[in-house]
Design a protein around this nucleic acid. Structure first.
Length: 394
DNA sequence: CTTCCACAGGAACCAGCGGACC
DNA sequence: GGTCCGCTGGTTCCTGTGGAAG
């Protein structure tokens, strides 16, 4: 009889895995002193009973936006009594004005956890709460995900005007700079009272961050300096994304562990780089609704067999017509005995997939078939087919 | 120059759902 | 248990576009 002891092995590399996870918030955040100070000075008025300005924060993923805000709000809560509150809302989940407001109301008012109230009712209750001189700061993370954002901003700014004492201010966080163009000018100017930018990390900065985490998360001498600098350099080149850098490092560590090594070197980092790429794709695909996956599958199959319209090769290799992809989609649906959705729905799936970076598309032009979209996959079709078909069966 | 093709994407609408309230 | 309310995930209808064909 084997003993479990032989499977429960002390890791030779990891000391604390959590430190490497993207949710971990370190005590000291490197290279963001400036932004943190600015945030604190912006919020300070709230502690003195005045309304702070609205702030808009922009930066790509993994540039420490959320981390910095979390840290500052944490400090803020220690200081503030019940006269001011900060509420953190992830707009990916609460992506409508109603939901945001409901979430705020729930957070602020005891026993306000019933759904089914109309928007005006919630609004009034909120006004009533802030009315006696309280400061409310709402952090909207991934603010670009909110639909009808204009409505929400308008409502909140109007609330401010109606309040004689107290106030409501907003910190908006986004990784899309362009999204402000879709806003109407009034909400734009109210949201952008103050603007902050989080630039991507440079290679040396990423290396320092990785070093800090490595000291906490790995055993002593388990990682070579070469490995850390390589991981930092790779991530800096790709995007300056700290999350990505950490992912490479921890994946490399897992690989070293699997091959029973006690040291993590640049060999593992190199190998991990490609895997991480694929991991990320896999994650996004797994979260996709069925129809999206079928569309993706259709595109992948056609990418292998190539477009029916040979003339396309003259223009650019590997692109497919929107129309033929839809045909493929419907025929796959029939094969798996599913009712295919309308072409209109299909077009919105396409847009969703493009937003997630799973495919790229360009408007036709240059002399092919009038007005259509040309579609191309962002990744190897064989891998996508593997992932999707495994997913749809299970 | 007009008409046609093959779409793009907005707007309005609808079915079905689930929780809160009476 | 009906109904009010809003959400989700579609559909239907529609107007817009830009190169190609006539």
């Amino acid at each position: 009889m084997p003993s479990f002891d032989e499977f429960i092995i002390e890791s030779k590399i990891f000391k604390d895995r959590d430190v490497l996870s993207p949710h971990y918030i370190p005590d000291t955040l490197h290279f963001r002193d400036h932004q943190i100070r600015e945030l604190m000075s912006s919020l300070a008025p709230a502690l003195m009973g005045k309304k702070p300005r609205n702030i808009f924060i922009y930066g790509k993923t993994g540039t420490g936006k959320t981390c910095s805000v979390r840290q500052v709000t944490g400090k803020f809560l220690e200081k503030s009594g019940d006269r001011s509150r900060i509420i953190y809302i992830n707009c990916r989940i609460h992506n409508k004005p109603y939901r945001v407001l409901l979430k705020v109301a729930k957070a602020v008012m005891e026993g306000f956890d019933k759904q089914g109230y109309g928007l005006p009712h919630i609004y009034e209750r909120l006004l009533g709460w802030a009315g006696d001189g309280k400061q409310l700061i709402i952090v909207l993370d991934e603010i670009d995900m909110v639909k009808h954002l204009d409505e929400l901003l308008y409502m909140l700014t109007r609330a401010n005007d109606e309040l004689e004492a107290g106030g409501i201010s907003i910190i908006g966080i986004s990784n899309r700079l362009l999204f402000k163009d879709d806003l109407d000018p009034r909400s734009k100017s109210s949201l952008y009272e103050r603007e902050m930018v989080f630039p991507p990390y440079t290679a040396p900065q990423l290396q320092a961050i990785l070093k800090q985490r490595a000291e906490l998360g790995f055993h002593e001498n388990a990682v070579t300096t070469g490995a850390i600098s390589l991981a930092g350099a790779v991530a800096a080149q790709e995007s300056g994304d700290a999350r990505y850098a950490l992912k490479i490092l921890s994946r490399a560590a897992e690989m070293a562990e699997e091959s029973k090594k006690d040291k993590l070197t640049d060999v593992e980092v190199k190998a991990a780089r490609d895997l991480v790429e694929l991991d990320l794709v896999k994650e996004t695909i797994e979260k996709l609704p069925e129809n999206h996956q079928v569309v993706l599958y259709a595109i992948a199959r056609l990418s292998i067999s190539g477009s029916k319209y040979r003339r396309l090769d003259e223009v650019q290799d590997g692109y497919l017509f929107s129309g033929e992809v839809y045909e493929e989609y419907t025929s796959i649906c029939k094969k798996i005995k599913k009712q295919p959705k309308t072409a209109r729905s299909y077009r919105s799936y396409l847009n969703d997939l493009e937003m997630l970076g799973l495919l790229t598309s360009v408007e036709s032009g240059k002399g092919i078939r009038g007005h259509t979209k040309l579609i191309k996959l962002g990744h190897s079709p064989q891998e996508l087919i593997r992932i999707v078909s495994k997913n749809l069966e299970g």
